[in-house]
Design a protein around this nucleic acid. Structure first.
Lengths: 296, 296
DNA sequence: CCAAAAGTGTTCTCTATACACCCATGA
DNA sequence: TCATGGGTGTATAGAGAACACTTTTGG
């Protein structure tokens, strides 16, 4: 123990002499859910929308703007534990899907001091958790997530080329709106490709959170097909059309029902439950099949 | 400016009062390459092997054991910049593929003090860079990477089940050997799945670096099919069988040549170059086609 | 000559796509 | 009744697996 603590002191002394970084570390949560949009026609199935939770900042900097919920990592917990704690504070739930995404460490990303933020994606089912959390007396609201590219430009350089793509992110609800434009630059030179992101415009959205949201959307889209993450957005029992809507909302495109049913057939289990809807044939309810990836 | 710096002071004061974390932050590099193994038969094509660079630790803790090259992030650089700098120190190169993988923040992972490590994967071409870097007077060596699961166990619980998988990681070269066993636990309860990793045994391999290596291998395997990362491991001109060997070494299984050629056809461009090998038909050389993902 | 790799063609299977079609419901 | 979604069948096209086969080389 003596040996150990002297090693620690030695380390800390050398570390500080060399002026290395001692940043503040936060976790930022990308809390997604899928909710039904109300419909007029009694026959029509309600559409779904992908939503993300944002919190209105009370303090400087970015005061009054919207930001991802987050919190500082304390000395007594791992980063994962911090993410779980912050999530519980915001939603009062602990048993949800949580995944580390990316760590953001640019120098000027927080104007106060050097802050490194580790972003986590959480997927919750809107039926189980209140859609308007408002926990901690903070102004928290769900925002409808929409993203779309608005411009693409390719330039040929000496020994390669460069493609710039402008992506517009819109986060909206009944009364609020935050939006940003991010320029994604892909350069290819001598066979090496590199991708960089830059926020060219951010309205009402704090810090570099636009990048975080876009990164999370990309991860979500990449993983939805070959993992089980979509089920975390649904209740235990669901119709296949619900599952299909979740896929459609994440992927941002319509799918054919027949093909979709076949594709996810071995990820679900049929149950005896039936949902009697309105104005059309009732739907059998299914549940998640946790053994779907049992090949070996 | 005055306003800004007072906000900074305010922030720092509150931050320290609350005893939040101010960790040391490092970047750890997973530097992969693929090298030819020498062969006896003049006809036989040389096999390839996946290698990773490790450094022998000179100091406590884990003195004398092997570890991933890494370094502290300074206050004057982003995490990405730190990764580039550390990579350049180890290999004397700057223009290579580099990708952030995961951030490791468990409390006890460094026995000296709280250290958060951000792992980056770099892929370099063994033809261009010396296989024995030895830069910085450190004892650095390439290790052959092998991993394989040795045991699987599934237990049914109250409302779900748990699958434990033991994975053995072996890192070897002519004279050295490091190895570790990691237990990967997947629990499914109430439809929620969760995965945790635990190092059950680590011989000659420092810190939690066994987890980092396994994580990188998984990422590599997932991405090799639908991205262009494999080309970073090859020289500018290569035969299709070289590319196939890189895929085989990463995926850990043999592929059929005919199917492979068709699959990667639009990722490569034919050139006029020809490699006259030994004892068999010469191979046309190809190069990377940077426009391969031009859909829409 | 001949072992080994380079490279092409063919067959079979599986999957995704597209679309047609029937079923069941409740205002 | 009928608009609407639930659910199934079928034809087509493309991708991947398996394998046969030809080409080309250097010792």
């Amino acid at each position: 123990m003596n040996n150990h603590s002297s090693a620690e002191q030695q380390f800390l002394k050398e570390y500080d002499v060399n002026q290395y970084l001692r940043p503040s570390v936060t976790v930022d949560l990308l809390l997604f859910t899928v909710v039904d949009k109300e419909t007029d026609n009694y026959r029509k199935r309600s559409d779904k929308a992908l939503k993300i939770l944002l919190i209105k900042r009370k303090d400087h900097p970015f005061q009054g703007q919207w930001a991802l919920p987050g919190g500082f990592v304390s000395a007594h917990e791992s980063i994962d534990e911090a993410a779980i704690r912050v999530l519980e504070k915001e939603t009062n739930v602990s048993d949800v899907y949580l995944e580390q995404l990316y760590t953001w460490g640019d120098i000027g990303r927080d104007p106060r001091t050097r802050v490194i933020s580790c972003s986590y994606m959480a997927l919750i089912n809107s039926d189980l958790y209140p859609v308007q959390p408002g926990a901690g007396a903070e102004d928290a609201k769900w925002f409808h997530v929409q993203d779309q590219w608005t411009q693409k430009k390719t330039t040929v350089t000496d020994n390669g080329f460069m493609t710039e793509k402008w992506v517009e992110l819109r986060l909206t609800n009944d009364s609020d709106r935050a939006q940003a434009t991010v320029k994604i630059t892909k350069t290819v030179e001598n066979g090496h490709s590199k991708v960089t992101q830059e926020i060219v415009d951010s309205q009402n959205l704090a810090f570099d959170h636009a990048k975080m949201v876009l990164y999370a959307l990309e991860r979500l889209r990449n993983k939805v097909d070959y993992t089980d993450i979509a089920f975390h957005l649904l209740p235990e029992y669901f119709a296949l059309s619900d599952l299909q809507q979740v896929f459609e909302v994440i992927l941002g495109k319509e799918l054919l029902a027949a093909a979709f049913r076949r594709k996810i057939a071995d990820k679900v289990l049929e149950t005896n439950h039936i949902r009697r809807s309105a104005g059309h044939r009732p739907a059998k309810l299914y549940k998640y099949n946790p053994n779907w990836d049992d090949e070996l």
